[in-house]
Amino acid sequence: MANTIIEGRNITRHFGAIHAVDGVDLDIQTGELFGLIGHNGAGKSTLFKMMLGLLPLTGGEIRVQGESVSGNNFRNVRRKIGYLPENLALYDNLTGLETLHFFARLKGADVQPCAAKLERVGLADAANRRVREYSKGMRQRLGFAQALLGEPKLLFLDEPTNGLDPEAIREFFAILRDLQAQGVTMILTSHILADIQERVDRLAIMKNGKIQSCGSVQALRETVNLPLIMEIGGTVTADQVAQMLDGLPVVSIETRLGRLWVKLPREAKMQALARLMTIGNGMQDLHVREPSLEDVFFGLSE
């Protein structure tokens, strides 16, 4: 596809007997905000490092903007890549502004806009303070400003909301929306799934070095088809409910915190509701829970 910015075929990385990334195919479209989630050790960081050309591939191929990550021309692609590492480490003895100047020079970018970048991430007041005195959140903001140097076309953000307070997280995603409007492609990982859920265009779930599933959040929900939960409050007993739902594909009925939890597939939702409505006084409350992204995530990665 002409719009593909990252093209990965059969991406494989073995560390001895461990298959950290095992035959992954991944295409990322220009301008997309793409989320990558998975447990620790699922292979996310290894995949990230290979896409950045930090780690050689055991097998397969990755092309970024048409250039192989292992090729000699990849240096030129790097000028337009921004990266915010997961465990960000900067130089304590430099000030915020000096840090940006250093990385801007390495990127071959103008040092002039560095001050503006600091302002954009809310560090204008701390520009001339040493990074040693920065809080974790301030370091993370500085790291983000660093990733924005040289007007990148492609941003890799590994756990970008690490150490940010909710206010800062909102500001962070506001910047991402601006960038997306400018056509910047972004790939991010996060443990805070709720952040990703509402913000990414597509999502890939990794497990044991493989991409388990990939698509929009809605598409993933439908693929997994996790049972939904009907939570019933009242005097009705589990046996009575079981009897009423007889013939429907009920997964389980259990009592939790004094309420009945009925698990059943989405298709049976309306039929089950209709039958439960006939309980009358035995039921004071009914709550239908859709599977959340966490459920989808754990459902896929279990």
């Binding site: 930090l54 790097r78 000028r79 990266y83 590492p85 990127k107």
Partner: peptide
Amino acid sequence: GSLDLLLTMPI
């Protein structure tokens, strides 16, 4: 932990 970031620079 700053080596990875350095190596993603065009260097």
